Lab assay of single mutants.
Amino acid sequence: LKGVVVAGGVLAGAVAVASFFLRNKRR
């Protein structure tokens, strides 16, 4: 169960970083 929580956190972080980079590329 702990691994699932960690994986979810990593996935959420990756999505946040990806969206951040996409926003920067638009400018």
Rank of each mutant, 00 (worst) to 15 (best):
R26C: 14
V10G: 03
G8I: 13
A7D: 03
A18R: 03
K25A: 12
A16G: 05
S19C: 14
N24C: 12
A7K: 15
V4T: 10
F21A: 05
L22C: 05
G3R: 13
A7M: 10
G13K: 13
V17K: 01
R23N: 06
F21Y: 08
A12K: 06
G3V: 12
L1I: 04
S19W: 15
R23Q: 05
F20D: 00
G8F: 09
G3N: 14
A14E: 00
A7F: 13
S19G: 07
F20L: 11
K2V: 08
F21D: 00
L11C: 06
G13N: 04
R27Y: 14
G9L: 07
V5I: 07
L1D: 02
A14L: 08
G13H: 11
R27E: 09
K2L: 07
V4Q: 09
G13T: 08
K2N: 07
G13A: 09
A7E: 03
L11G: 01
F20Q: 04
N24E: 04
R27W: 10
G9Q: 10
N24M: 15
A14I: 11
V15Y: 13
G3I: 15
V17H: 01
G13V: 08
S19A: 12
L22K: 06
F21Q: 02
F21T: 02
A7R: 11
G3T: 15
L22A: 05
A16D: 00
K2F: 09
F21G: 01
V5Q: 05
V5P: 01
L1Y: 02
A7W: 06
V6I: 11
L11H: 01
V5G: 07
V10P: 02
V10W: 11
A16C: 07
F20C: 09
V4L: 12
K2W: 10
A18W: 12
G3K: 11
G8P: 04
G3E: 06
G3C: 13
A14R: 05
G8W: 11
R27K: 12
A14W: 09
S19V: 13
R26V: 15
V17G: 01
A7C: 10
G3Y: 15
A14G: 04
R26T: 11
R27P: 10
G8H: 10
L11A: 03
V15N: 00
F20Y: 05
F20E: 01
A18F: 05
K25Y: 15
L1P: 10
G9V: 09
A14D: 00
A16T: 06
F20I: 10
S19D: 07
G9K: 07
F21C: 05
F21N: 00
V4E: 02
A7G: 09
S19H: 12
G9E: 06
V4A: 14
A16P: 00
L22H: 04
G13P: 01
K25N: 11
L11Q: 00
A12L: 04
A16K: 06
V10S: 03
G3A: 08
L11N: 00
V17L: 07
G8C: 09
V15W: 12
A14K: 03
A14S: 06
V10Y: 02
V4F: 15
L22Y: 12
A14Q: 04
V4I: 07
K25I: 13
A12H: 05
R23V: 06
F21E: 00
V10R: 06
V5K: 10
G8S: 14
G13I: 07
A14N: 01
K25P: 08
G13W: 11
G9N: 05
R27T: 15
L1A: 08
A18K: 02
L11K: 01
L22Q: 02
N24Y: 12
G9A: 08
F20G: 03
K25M: 11
L1N: 04
A7I: 11
R27M: 15
L1C: 13
G9P: 05
S19N: 14
V5E: 03
G8T: 13
